[in-house]
């Protein structure tokens, strides 16, 4: 659904641009290809690495890590797993809901989802390429700390603390 909207809007704008100015449109498409090609090498490496990582860290393993251990150790492990994995939201949320049913706590799940979404260890090289080492590392480090804040607040609100 999201994709259909994205593609329709893009197609519409390309057509509009083409009608208005062919030269500019060609230039835009050339730029698009250039920036795509620019990240392609690193990107293909990253998705292969994520594949290898997730082969070891499937839902079962993640469930064992944060399901069996409760409290802050579980939160810590959950945040680490979230930081190094790269799982799309539409898989992550159902997985999280499932983990919750199999005994993981809200705090651990909160830390997991927060660090999953905001921290990207495997995409760090890519982020550095765009923003430089300092900005990228600081952003990720702070976002990682925030996963614990999320766990703390969620633990309070959901009545686990």
């Amino acid at each position: 659904m999201e994709n259909i909207v994205l593609y329709s809007v893009t197609a519409l704008l390309v057509v509009l641009s083409w009608v208005k100015d062919r030269g500019k449109t060609k230039q835009a498409l050339r730029k698009a290809w250039k920036s795509f090609e620019n990240i392609l090498p690193q990107f293909s490496g990253i998705i292969l690495m994520v594949g290898i990582l997730l082969a070891f860290l499937n839902a079962d393993v993640i469930g064992r890590i944060i399901g069996s251990s409760s409290g802050w150790l579980g939160v810590l492990l959950a945040s680490v797993v979230g930081a190094i994995t790269l799982i799309p939201g539409f898989i992550a949320f159902p997985t999280a809901a499932m983990l919750l049913q199999t005994g993981a706590g809200y705090m651990q799940i909160g830390a997991f989802i927060s660090s999953l979404m905001m921290v990207g260890v495997v995409t760090l090289p890519l982020e550095i390429k765009y923003f430089g080492k300092r900005a990228a590392i600081w952003r990720n480090a702070l976002a990682y700390v925030f996963a614990f804040v999320a766990a703390l607040v969620i633990g309070k609100v959901m009545g686990e603390l």
Binding site: S17, L29, A32
Partner: peptide, 22 residues
């Protein structure tokens, strides 16, 4: 992931190209 990348990245980059030019 490759499927996701092939689905999402091309339109994003095309939109970026247009934004840059227009």
């Amino acid at each position: 992931s490759l499927k996701e990348m092939i689905l999402i990245l091309p339109p994003i980059f095309v939109l970026l190209g247009l934004l840059d030019v227009w």
